[in-house]
């Protein structure tokens, strides 16, 4: 928790800054609208956290989100009665993709960077091969409700975000989470303690796939169908996780901080917009802040992988 503190401070400062120039932000609807917008990225960050804490990457989530939305649109094609079966299918797709990532990474010893990069190409190629190049069909009203409607005063997506957050926290407190993070910290010690490292890693990828499915469902509802809907989300999710103080290479950081990292990123976008910094320069500011945040974290923490004194076993990448 101690290490997670900085991100909450930064988040708080950003939220105060937003509120200062836009008082509406402090009112429940204003803040809920912010959370609603941030929910998909926060959910993706939660999923990505499991993979990163185990010492891996998942670059396939962006294209997986696109796949989920495009598949939903084509299969539902405006027919409300198809909503629930398709939702179930989307969840299954997410899990299967994650499972495939995990199995290839562990059983075939392919570095996850490459596994998920390949998966990214395969997914985006396959889905457009199927739809013939552009998204087709339409989402149903029932489907879009999750992304843009409310239950009483609270948006569905905020409720779903809360549930995802709660489940993620519980998972990390459970035996699975504790052994996963131990394996990310010291794979050999974990396996000599009887941890099934491969299995835990595969689960982590499956969770990431599942989170992409949920994020896709919310984003599709929120933003509508487009071929670019998931573009760049994998990098945003990884950035959010790292901003939350989670270290690439595994074994450190909390899932709450990772989700807070996603909220921070969204708050940053909101603030930049408020101050009239155009859509493009926003990226520049984002880039500077990410590097600065990670650099500050690295300088303060003594035992960082990749630092000069680290033993080779802490290398963040797998040798194929």
């Amino acid at each position: 928790m101690k290490r997670a503190l900085p991100i909450f401070t930064v988040l708080l400062v950003l939220l105060i800054a937003i509120a200062a120039s836009n008082p509406y932000f402090l009112e429940p609807p204003g803040f809920l609208a912010f959370l609603k917008r941030a929910a998909p990225l926060a959910i993706l960050a939660a999923g990505q956290y499991f993979v990163i804490v185990a010492g891996e990457f998942d670059l396939s989530v962006g294209s997986l989100v696109t796949v989920e939305v495009v598949v939903a649109a084509r299969l539902i094609d405006g027919d409300d009665s198809a909503t629930w079966p398709v939702l179930a299918l989307l969840i299954v797709i997410g899990l299967l993709v994650g499972l495939a990532n995990g199995v290839i990474t562990t059983a075939l010893a392919v570095p996850s960077f490459i596994t998920t990069l390949g998966m990214m190409l395969i997914l985006s190629g396959a889905v457009f091969l199927w739809t013939g190049g552009a998204p087709r069909g339409a989402l149903s009203e029932g489907f879009r409700a999750f992304g843009r409607e409310e239950l009483g005063p609270i948006p569905w997506s905020v409720l779903i975000l809360l549930v995802v957050g709660a489940v993620a926290i519980l998972l990390m407190r459970a035996d699975f989470g504790r052994t996963l993070i131990a394996a990310g910290d010291n794979r050999r010690a974990a396996s000599l303690s009887g941890v099934r490292v491969h299995r835990a890693t595969i689960f982590a990828f499956a969770i990431s796939g599942l989170s992409a499915a949920i994020a896709g469902i919310l984003l599709g509802g929120f933003a509508g169908v487009s071929a670019q809907i998931g573009q760049g989300l994998e990098f945003q999710a990884i950035t959010a996780v790292v901003l939350g103080g989670v270290v690439l290479g595994g074994g450190r950081g909390s899932v709450v901080a990772a989700m807070a990292g996603a909220l921070t990123l969204e708050a940053l976008f909101t603030l930049l917009n408020l101050h009239g910094i155009s859509g493009a320069l926003e990226f520049t500011v984002q880039g500077v802040i990410i590097i600065a945040a990670v650099a500050v974290g690295a300088v303060r923490l003594p035992f960082r992988p990749g630092a000069s004194i680290s033993p080779p076993m802490l290398k963040t990448k797998e040798t194929p």
Partner: peptide, 25 residues
């Protein structure tokens, strides 16, 4: 194990998490 740091412990995890590692696994 002989090499505590490389093979015995997840050094950045808490005493509790290390002590419970085998039973959890």
């Amino acid at each position: 194990t002989e090499d505590r740091k490389a093979e015995g412990l997840a050094l950045r995890q808490s005493v509790r998490d290390n002590a419970l590692l085998v039973t959890r696994a």
